[in-house]
């Protein structure tokens, strides 16, 4: 199986703080990878690097045969193909839901306004948010905002979707609706990489679970392997701490 996304020996440091210390991973088309690990282990940084929000110091990010991390490669083009959803939603508060979703379609992808709006409405309708198209973010619940944020990223038809702890800021009773959306995206064949604290969800949705520790992939495998019978001591300790909560 050839990989859609190949992460090769990626390094990233902020000053003297080495956050990523050689991450390598092949992600086949249509598969879902969950990154688990303590805060500071590099999950968020890795996702931000894959979207090119942070330039990497060393290594390569190959998407569909193209090195998008190569110097001089147009990051704006790459970013449209690698969607990123944030923990804090980051919807644009001065725009209604429809405009939030169409903004990048019309201005980054150069799609005509009518077409962009029909794409957006279709997606909002499919994920049960059609009646919120004219609402502003502050009028929505956290769960609704995060669903809009995911739709905003998906609307660009990215090859890969990156989800950075997308349920971590939500009230517990709102987590379900967001996870349902992600599960549906998975069923429609979306390739996804997600940083998450939801171990049960990772077990249900992910094909591969990676345990990150101090900027490296410490252990990696099928969810049942990593989550139920981890080989590494650190993975065991992390899971014991997490599950107790």
């Amino acid at each position: 199986m050839t990989a859609l996304l190949s992460i090769r020996n990626v390094h990233k440091s902020f000053g003297s703080n080495d956050v990523l210390r050689g991450i390598s991973l092949d992600v086949p088309r249509g598969s879902v990878v969950a990154f688990i690990g303590a805060s500071g282990s590099g999950k968020s940084t890795l996702l931000r690097c894959l979207n090119l929000l942070e330039p990497i110091d060393d290594g390569e990010i190959i998407l569909d045969g193209t090195d998008i991390s190569a110097p001089g490669f147009d990051a704006n083009v790459a970013r449209r193909d690698v969607g990123l959803v944030f923990q804090s939603y980051n919807l644009f508060p001065h725009m209604n839901v429809l405009r939030n979703v169409t903004l990048a379609l019309t201005h980054a992808a150069g799609i005509a306004k009518d077409e962009a709006e029909s794409t957006a409405k279709e997606l909002l309708d499919r994920f049960g948010l059609a009646d919120k198209a004219r609402a502003y973010p502050e009028q929505l619940s956290g769960g609704q905002q995060q669903r809009v944020a995911i739709i905003r990223a998906v609307a660009l038809r990215p090859s890969v979707l990156l989800l950075d702890e997308v349920t971590a800021a939500l009230d517990p009773q709102l987590v379900g609706e967001v996870l349902d959306l992600i599960a549906e995206l998975r069923n429609s064949g979306m390739t996804m990489l997600m940083a998450t604290h939801e171990m049960n969800f990772a077990r249900d949705v992910a094909d591969t679970v990676c345990f990150l520790h101090e900027g490296t992939i410490h252990e990696m495998g099928r969810p049942d392997e990593v989550l139920e019978s981890p080989r590494e001591e650190r993975t065991k300790a992390f899971l014991a701490r997490t599950m107790r909560r």
């Binding site: 970013r79 449209r80 969607g83 944030f86 980051n90 980054a108």
Partner: peptide, 13 residues
């Protein structure tokens, strides 16, 4: 800053 990050992550210049 997260507003800029969101806009740039979508491919806006």
């Amino acid at each position: 800053e997260s507003q800029r990050a969101a806009a740039r992550s979508l491919g806006l210049t």
